[in-house]
Computed example of a mutant assay.
Amino acid sequence: MSNWADLTTGARIKHLRGTDLTQTQLAEAADLSLSLIQKAEQDRGELSLSSLLKIAAALRTDTAVILGQQAPRRGMSHDTRAALRQLSDSVHASALGDWDGLTDPSDLAVLTEARDAAGEAYWRGDTPKFTALGAKVLLEGRARHESAQGYERQQIGLVLATTYQYAASSAVLLGQRDLALAALTSARNLANDAGDPYVSALVESTLSWIHLRSARAARATAVAERAAARIEPSFSRPTTAQLVAYGRLMISAAVAASRGGNATMADDYLSQAHASAARLGHDTDLYGTHFGPTFASTEAVGIAVALGNHGQALRLASRTELPRTMPKLARNRYKLDVALAQVECKLYDAAADTLVDVGRDAPEWVRHQALPGVIGKRLAKVSTARVRRVSEAIGMPLFA
């Protein structure tokens, strides 16, 4: 695609409409005439502000994107754009107390069930379903939390905190850092208000990840390290919650240190994560956060890749077995690390096969990852035909 700002307004509308909507469907969704949509895409005449706002709402985007002031996320489907808008609306509306019309919000049991289902959808990479369930929890949960007291208020607060944490993770995957930070601010406040130090620690783990995705490795390390220091377990009689939260924070710190090129710090944090995983003895999850021996082993592969130890990464991968219960997103993120290690070790066919495997397993999620493009560029230096075949197999261009 050409530079987004260099396209005409009509070309941008046509691109955003894509193959998900016909011109007739866009006209109906925007409550505008078909002829107006046709003229808009042909750049015949000027769109009124009212028409521009209606088209932006129907395309689930912002007017700034249509006008070329900011570019859209590459390859984002109409369903994902709609889900992102719903996610943004629910995060902000719930935080601001905008839940007019909710006269009988769901109780704790229903909210907990919806939160768990939302978490499962998140780990499957089903953004539309996650957003629909998450929006219900955030809006109804905040309304219920407002009048709840005692134990009920505490538990609803934890349900809300973990749902906001999921929302933050989903937002950052879609490149929406400001939305992620807004959601995480609500998560932190609710977790602190509920008085659960381990949920608060897991919120900080997500914050560390957001900083890492924003190329702030030093800050990501510091956030994880400070949070871990507050909950460091006694290894004589640790609880499951302590081991999960501490282990995840040590992984966060190790990953951040590896991205900053500090092998010594990365190894130290990783060894503590392995110790927590070994003490735990099995894979588990705490409020939807997964940790255990498998998680520590797969993250060790990614850390080796980040440090440039590609041979070591493949050796570690050869000893790592992925259980069938491993969440789809975690599994495919690990496989992208393996594919990068394979291409750096000149195992081009293996890297291509791994990338195809990821693309077919999580076609929408992979569009929002940076590693496929990096791997594609490496493959293209050897064979552009191979890259074209992989691109066709996973249904997306590996690089522009």
Rank of each mutant, 00 (worst) to 15 (best):
253 A>C: 06
253 A>S: 11
254 A>D: 06
255 V>N: 06
256 A>F: 06
256 A>P: 07
257 A>G: 09
257 A>W: 06
258 S>W: 03
260 G>E: 12
261 G>Y: 11
262 N>P: 00
263 A>L: 05
266 A>F: 07
267 D>E: 15
267 D>T: 15
276 S>N: 12
277 A>E: 11
277 A>L: 07
280 L>S: 07
280 L>P: 02
280 L>R: 07
281 G>T: 12
281 G>C: 10
283 D>F: 10
285 D>V: 04
286 L>P: 02
290 H>W: 13
290 H>F: 13
291 F>H: 09
292 G>W: 05
293 P>T: 13
293 P>C: 09
294 T>M: 05
294 T>D: 10
295 F>C: 02
296 A>Y: 08
297 S>K: 15
297 S>P: 01
298 T>P: 00
299 E>H: 13
299 E>A: 04
299 E>V: 01
300 A>I: 02
301 V>H: 10
303 I>Q: 08
303 I>S: 10
304 A>C: 10
305 V>D: 10
306 A>F: 02
309 N>Y: 11
309 N>Q: 15
310 H>C: 07
311 G>I: 06
312 Q>H: 12
313 A>G: 11
314 L>K: 08
315 R>W: 02
317 A>R: 12
319 R>D: 14
321 E>R: 15
322 L>N: 08
323 P>T: 07
325 T>H: 14
328 K>V: 13
329 L>D: 03
330 A>Y: 09
331 R>F: 01
333 R>K: 14
333 R>V: 03
334 Y>L: 04
335 K>I: 03
336 L>G: 05
338 V>F: 10
339 A>T: 03
339 A>F: 01
340 L>F: 14
342 Q>V: 01
342 Q>H: 02
346 K>G: 01
346 K>Y: 09
347 L>W: 01
348 Y>L: 02
348 Y>I: 02
353 D>R: 11
353 D>S: 11
